[in-house]
């Protein structure tokens, strides 16, 4: 898909078959850190997606200008620029979200999904393709965060988006909300998705 990329295919790849978190296990630090509540998970996902799209587009535009030797430094500067911009804008116009995400917004700079896509995709492809790559990978990241955060918030705190799900008799397992629980939930979700993928493959082979 060098030039005529297929958008539908890219969506499927970014969200399911090549999902950055669930399939490539990239960006695990922000994934575990922000998924203790659905609101934070979504905020992180969307912020990272915006940075990813913007950095992909700019890096793709500059791909012939940036010499190979200093590409990583150049990418980091560009990514850090966008992250700082998002940070300032959130502080000015979305102070409550900015507060709950806190340190994790500046940490998008070192999110390996963004650098990974810059290196593996945007530095070699056209601007349009890079834009869609950023969009689909960002959606995949947000989707993964949403699923993990949903499981963790429901079982770890007994709420969904802050609303109580079970009655007051429910005793939340607070370990799910902490880091070890994050690893457990992530592991189980990855395992379930692998199982589904394998079943699908087997079915396909069986039919053929």
């Amino acid at each position: 898909m060098a030039k005529n990329f297929k958008i539908g295919e890219m969506f499927k790849s970014g969200i399911i078959t090549n999902n950055p978190v669930l399939m490539q296990t990239l960006g695990i630090c922000p994934t575990l850190a922000t998924t203790s509540s659905v609101e934070n998970g979504l905020g992180m996902g969307v912020s990272a997606m915006v940075v990813l799209i913007a950095s992909n587009v700019v890096i793709s535009l500059l791909r012939k200008v940036i010499p190979k030797k200093i590409r990583i430094a150049a990418y980091i500067v560009i990514i850090a620029g966008f992250v700082t911009m998002i940070d300032l804008i959130l502080k000015a116009y979305g102070p409550s979200l900015s507060k709950s995400l806190g340190l994790f917004i500046p940490l998008i700079v070192v999110n390996c999904i963004i650098l990974g896509r810059a290196e593996a995709f945007a530095s070699k492809r056209t601007v349009g393709a890079s834009f869609f790559d950023g969009l689909t990978m960002g959606l995949g990241f947000t989707f993964a965060l949403f699923i993990i955060a949903t499981v963790r918030e429901i079982f770890g705190a007994g709420t969904f988006l802050g609303h109580e799900v079970f009655g007051s008799a429910f005793q939340p397992a607070s370990i799910i909300g902490m880091a070890p629980g994050g690893f457990l939930v992530l592991g189980i979700i990855v395992a379930v998705i692998q199982l589904i993928q394998r079943k699908k493959k087997e079915k396909k082979e069986g039919n053929a």
């Binding site: 150049a74 500067v77 911009m85």
Partner: peptide
């Protein structure tokens, strides 16, 4: 290489300075 990197950094700094000047008052107000 140094010059290219400097130009990129300079442009990013310029844009950030601009964004900062827009959001500064709003952040102080918040």
């Amino acid at each position: 290489l140094g010059i290219i990197l400097f130009i990129i950094t300079f442009c990013v700094a310029l844009v950030l300075g601009f964004v900062n000047s827009i959001t500064k008052d709003q952040i102080a107000y918040q």
